[in-house]
Design a protein around this nucleic acid. Sequence first.
DNA 1: ACTATTTTGTTTCGTATCGCTACTATTTTT
DNA 2: AAAAATAGTAGCGATACGAAACAAAATAGT
Lengths: 202, 202
Amino acid sequence: MTAIGQTTDKGDTAGDISSHVAEQLVHLARLVHGGSSDQCLTPAQWTALRYFARANRFSRTPSAFSEFHATTRGTASQTVKSLIALGFLERHANKSDGRSALIEVTPAGHEKLKDDPLSALTRAIALLPADERGRFATVVSVLASTMARSRTAPIFGNCGECGHCDTTGGGPAYCRCTQSLLNQDDMSALCVDFLPAPPNLR
Amino acid sequence: MTAIGQTTDKGDTAGDISSHVAEQLVHLARLVHGGSSDQCLTPAQWTALRYFARANRFSRTPSAFSEFHATTRGTASQTVKSLIALGFLERHANKSDGRSALIEVTPAGHEKLKDDPLSALTRAIALLPADERGRFATVVSVLASTMARSRTAPIFGNCGECGHCDTTGGGPAYCRCTQSLLNQDDMSALCVDFLPAPPNLR
DNA sequence: ACTATTTTGTTTCGTATCGCTACTATTTTT
DNA sequence: AAAAATAGTAGCGATACGAAACAAAATAGT
């Protein structure tokens, strides 16, 4: 075989290792929601609650969430509706566009997020050595971008790393896409209109 | 704040970064099945087909799959039944235990696995530099173990890295758990009875 | 040897998740 | 002003999944 020199005598190729890692990755993601002690919310509801807590003010709409979640607007609308009924989200009208709705997380929603089953994974990641964690974060980001491209799904990212963001002014950053000034909170928030910088890994 | 010295002026703590990575990780996993071109099989069916193709002969049972998938035996039984009806799996009797069923992937099933939507992620991982990929694999493995422990889910792993495996004999490896000899294929296959070695990262 | 108890697997049923297809309301285009 | 595009919702239907009950076989206990 064309096996790369390894310690194992088996013909382990890079493809074998990669597929194995890929399987473990989806298994890891399933463990987040599977067997969780808190069964109050469904996976889709948790994702939505997390999304609206993290997204910037241009992206807190049902449509943007449907793109993020790779689902239809109808399904996203239902998920939002259910969370509003539970009191974790609330709807506000958009003054500049009568069609659009601005979704906000209520105090109860923020409280609920403290029971997020994802926090188990967050803690596990926080236990990693700092440099290891940094490299891991970079790789996950690169993989997410690659996957989003191949699935023609939008790539969501922080304004701070967005190609639309202009920080040269010295003062507050300016977003060329939405043509508005960005405050500190915006800079670390998710945005639908994220323009990825070319991924340069090392 | 008690922020660790970082390049950003924002108070980014390790927890913030970790939760962000955790979110991206589940998003990444969702992209695997969301928006896939091949919609013939459901996510649960893909997982089952992958599992039975990868598991060793002691673990190719509906029960073992239900544990792996963190679901109930009833649901696992349905998934298996549907894949048998589709001709991708087949059932064999276990001679030593009349209750147990041994599930095998048919040639059609192996052919189907070539269209696995997971392969997009596999390819993305394969594009990583070799050393980066190796570190990534280790971290994913550690995280999976940590999560499985916190969810009291069994940790699945290869016989080659299992605490039950005895390779000191020089000849074929011996599994102290099932009390049987392991061939080459077994060594790289998943096993329910995997006994993890203590995770030593770096 | 004979009876519990445990384990494996299946079946049935109910829930609710999610995608699909209209449909309304508002904005933008021509 | 009319047409097209967009944001969001409602209803329908398929089905995935979990919970519980059940049957068969193996194991434990006496």
